[in-house]
Simulated scan of single mutants.
Amino acid sequence: MNIDYDQQNSESKPPVAIPVEQLSAEVLDAVIESFILREGTDYGVMEISLDKKKEQIHRQLKKNEIRIVYDFNTESVTMMTDLAWKKLPKS
């Protein structure tokens, strides 16, 4: 099988928002925890527990302040603010 990687990379797809309702509680928890751990643990003067940070993210998701986003190009899932999502170019 011969793959033309240059052609494959030039065909980028825009990211998609994943509705929280479509994720099981276990998957949602794993996505949130992965995001928190990837973002680091320096919260300034006061240290925030993992559970507290998870609660904050759940609250932001319910208020539609942040979105879970899948990027086809990097094959990764992340979170971003609603404002950042709206600024992304759409195809």
Rank of each mutant, 00 (worst) to 15 (best):
K86C: 00
A84C: 04
L23E: 09
S91L: 10
L37S: 14
A30L: 11
A30V: 14
T81H: 00
I36V: 03
N64A: 15
K62M: 01
L28R: 06
V20Q: 04
S49P: 13
P15C: 15
I32C: 04
S49E: 06
E65R: 07
L61K: 02
A30E: 08
G40Q: 00
D42L: 04
D82E: 11
D6W: 12
V77E: 01
E39A: 15
K62R: 11
K63C: 03
S10F: 11
G44E: 08
Y5S: 06
M79I: 05
Q60G: 02
K90Y: 02
E75M: 13
G40A: 04
K13E: 08
L28Q: 15
A30T: 08
P15Y: 03
P89E: 09
N73I: 07
K52L: 15
I48G: 11
R67E: 08
D29K: 13
S24R: 06
Q7T: 15
D42K: 08
T78P: 07
D4R: 02
K63A: 09
K54A: 12
E75Y: 03
D29A: 14
D4H: 06
K90W: 04
S91Q: 07
V27G: 07
S12E: 12
I18M: 09
A84F: 03
K90V: 15
Q22T: 10
M46L: 04
T74W: 15
S12Y: 12
D4E: 13
S49A: 01
K86H: 08
A30R: 09
A30C: 12
L37D: 11
D51N: 09
E47L: 12
G40L: 00
V16T: 12
E33I: 11
T78H: 08
A17E: 11
E26H: 02
L83H: 09
I66E: 04
T78L: 13
P19D: 14
D4Y: 05
L88G: 06
L83C: 02
T41P: 07
K13W: 01
V77G: 11
L61G: 06
V77M: 12
F35Y: 12
I48L: 10
Q22R: 11
M1R: 00
P89T: 01
T41H: 14
P14S: 09
I66V: 08
E26Y: 05
E39R: 07
M1F: 07
S24M: 12
V27L: 12
N73W: 12
V20P: 12
E26T: 10
N9C: 03
G40P: 02
M80Y: 04
V31G: 06
V77A: 06
E55G: 05
F72T: 02
E33M: 01
L50Y: 10
I18Q: 01
Q22H: 10
Q22F: 00
D42C: 08
E39N: 15
Q7S: 05
N9F: 00
H58C: 13
P15S: 10
R38G: 14
Y5R: 03
K86T: 02
S10D: 15
S12N: 14
K13R: 09
I68Y: 00
N64H: 15
V31P: 05
V45D: 15
Q22N: 11
V77F: 03
K63D: 03
